[in-house]
Simulated scan of single mutants.
Amino acid sequence: MNIARINVNTGGDPTPGYQGDEGRFRDLEALVGKPLPASYIEFLRTHDGGHPEASSFFPPGEDDYDYSHEINSFYTLSDGKACVFNAFKSWRETLGEGILPIANDSGNNQIYLDLNETPPPVCMWLHDVEELDENGESVEDFLVADSFEAFIDGLTIDLNLI
C-alpha cells in the first residue's frame, strides 16, 4: 500500500498523522466491536483524515470516469466535525453493525469498511439510490475494493478535474 502516492491534504497542506493518545484506536475498536485492519491504523497514523489528491475510484468492472466516484474527505481519528467516532455514531443505524465509515464523497455518500468480513472490504453506500438489482435487492451498497490496501492502491487522479 502506497499511502504517500495519494497525497492527502487539508486546504493544500499535507495532513499530519494522528498525534494523540494511542488508546483512541482501542476506543474505536471497542465502539465498533471489531478490530481495525492494520493498514487502516497505519493510514491514520500517517494521515489523520483529509482530502486525497488521488481521490477517484470506480465501481467494479468500470474504468470510465463518467462512472467514477470521488472521495471528498477521509474521517479523522481526532475530535472534530469530521471525526470517525461521530461518523460511526451517525451512520450506525443506517449502515449496520460492524460497519465503519472511513470517508465520504461530496454528496455525503459513505465509503466504509465492512469489519464483519476478513479481510474487511471497502464498500460504498449511496443514500439517494432507489434501484433494485435482478433479484429485487437494493443496489445502494456496492463493493469498491477487497481490502483497504487495494482501495488505497486503486485511487486515481481524475485528469478532468485538474
Rank of each mutant, 00 (worst) to 15 (best):
D21H: 07
R24H: 04
A87H: 03
K81M: 01
Y75G: 03
F25H: 08
N104M: 08
G136P: 03
G11K: 11
Y40C: 04
I152Q: 01
F85E: 08
T94N: 04
I157H: 05
A150T: 10
D128S: 14
E97K: 11
Y112M: 09
D141W: 15
Y67L: 11
G136H: 06
A38F: 05
N104D: 11
N108T: 11
C123A: 12
T156G: 02
H127D: 05
F148L: 10
G20M: 05
S90T: 12
F142P: 00
G23F: 05
L28Y: 06
N135S: 13
E42L: 09
E131N: 15
D48H: 08
F58D: 01
E62G: 04
A30C: 08
S39F: 03
E117W: 03
D48T: 08
F57C: 05
G50W: 07
Y67E: 14
C83W: 01
T118M: 09
P14S: 06
N135H: 13
G11E: 09
G136F: 09
D63Y: 00
G17L: 00
A30W: 06
D114P: 06
W125V: 04
R45W: 00
L95A: 02
E22T: 09
N86F: 07
F151C: 07
F142K: 02
T76V: 00
G80N: 03
P119G: 10
Y67I: 01
D141P: 02
T76I: 00
D48L: 03
G136V: 08
M124Q: 13
G17Y: 00
G50P: 05
Y18L: 01
Y65K: 06
F88D: 05
L36R: 03
P35A: 14
D21T: 02
L44T: 02
A54S: 10
E22V: 06
L28N: 06
T118S: 15
D158E: 11
G80S: 09
V129Y: 11
V129C: 15
L100N: 04
E70Y: 00
E42Q: 11
H69R: 12
D133F: 11
R26S: 13
V139E: 14
D79N: 10
C123S: 14
N86K: 12
A103F: 07
F142A: 01
E140F: 15
E131Q: 14
V144S: 04
Y18S: 01
D133H: 04
T118A: 15
A82K: 04
L77H: 03
H47S: 13
S68C: 15
G98E: 09
M124R: 07
E140V: 02
R24T: 13
T76H: 06
F43R: 05
L126S: 08
Y75R: 02
Y112H: 12
P16N: 13
I102S: 04
T94F: 00
L143K: 15
T15C: 10
P120E: 12
D21E: 13
N72Q: 11
E29Q: 15
R24Q: 10
E117H: 09
G136C: 11
D105E: 05
T15G: 01
S55R: 15
E70D: 15
D153H: 07
V139C: 14
Y112A: 10
I41P: 02
L77M: 04
G98M: 10
S56D: 09
T156W: 02
G96M: 11
G98D: 08
S106V: 13
F85W: 07
S90D: 13
G154T: 02
D146Q: 14
D48F: 08
G98Q: 07
I71R: 01
